[in-house]
Design a protein around this nucleic acid. Sequence first.
DNA 1: TTGACATATCGGAAAATCTCGATATAATAA
DNA 2: TTATTATATCGAGATTTTCCGATATGTCAA
Lengths: 96, 96
Amino acid sequence: MIIVLKALSNEKRLKILQWLKEPKKNFASSHCDVAKDGVCVGLIEEKIGLSQSTVSQYLMLLQQAGLITTERRGQWTYCKRNEKAIKELVKNLENI
Amino acid sequence: MIIVLKALSNEKRLKILQWLKEPKKNFASSHCDVAKDGVCVGLIEEKIGLSQSTVSQYLMLLQQAGLITTERRGQWTYCKRNEKAIKELVKNLENI
DNA sequence: TTGACATATCGGAAAATCTCGATATAATAA
DNA sequence: TTATTATATCGAGATTTTCCGATATGTCAA
């Protein structure tokens, strides 16, 4: 619970999570379908204006918190929201 | 939003908020009715095992985040959960 | 008024977080 | 195989958070 709240309590990470809610609206990829495949790290990096290493670490944090899933495919790592876990979190927060 | 999540993303502060949900179960006061009046700082301090100054500061953070209300009455400061704000938060988190 | 109690504020040490550049790894293309 | 591209990891400086003790303020009781 704390680890999830910690992951969320950062503006940039929260923004990433929110962007991933509407991949098509927020990202454009030439090599994949962001809605189906997920959004690769480079696109997020480009949009958020943080260094590549920072984005990579932030995504790791979000993943450890269970808020996103990542999947390596070829040279890319695709990120998606973990809607199930997010719903679970909100449900838990209801009796905080 | 971020300020609220930051306030919540600390184990001790989250604990305080949760304790305040059931004042009668968690606190016993000789000079007031914790359910009606609220819980004074000293009781929280005693239970959580942090210094008086730290507890005072944490309560200030929770208050600034809108999660609790505090009211000075006599020499005591009584704390209560701000259920309305908490509900609002959870509602907002639903479309995070 | 003075002393005792409850809480708030201040200043700072230690730990954690933020963020970067450099470098490593992994996959692909030439 | 080598170069290129995408991502991960490492090490470190800057900033923020955690938490304390000392001190200040406010209230009450004698």
